[in-house]
Amino acid sequence: MKVRFDFIVHWLWTIVFSILTISGLAMVGPRYGWIMNYDIASADFAHRVLAAVFVVLTFIAVGYEIIRVIKSDDKYLAWQVIGRSGYQLFTFITTLIFIITGAIIWVCMDTNMAATSFALYLHEKLTYIVLASLIWHIYMKCHALLWPKKPEKKSKALNESR
């Protein structure tokens, strides 16, 4: 069985982003704390560790796309998370904003409160936008949720032919 590279990156990216969403939402404020039973320490730890994985996966996807551009490969890759048009372009832009604001929050937390507050605001509001877009994305690709049909047995087919 041959599994494509963009397919693997897509689903790894999905797993990481789903955990990042839950751990991030738990830290938004007292209204959201119940999501992880107010265990902010675990949410913070999971969010930071997986953010690093998320950045690495994004750079891999960007690098893969750059190599395709250099090779003038215009073939559409359905599973590629980052691309030059449509939802792939939207993901690319939002991911870059997530990474930049996340880095500002991480680095400037103790030194520049104004920058941290602004980055936190952007990071949070972008989460809601991306979450809504993901629901739309799942709706558009809902055929992936259909259960595979069982192949009809050979004997049954033979009997019917007789």
Binding site: W11, T14, I15, S18, T21, I22, L25, V28, R31, Y32, W34, I35, Y128, L131, A132, L134, I135, I138, A144, L145, W147, P148
Partner: peptide, 24 residues
């Protein structure tokens, strides 16, 4: 089939996250 279950699981996580936001 196991991959279909995985896709269902991940989709549910995102729908749950969206409902978390609405509830909060």
């Amino acid at each position: 089939p196991w991959f279909k279950i995985f896709i269902w699981f991940i989709s549910t996580v995102f729908f749950l996250s969206a409902s978390f936001c609405l509830i909060a």
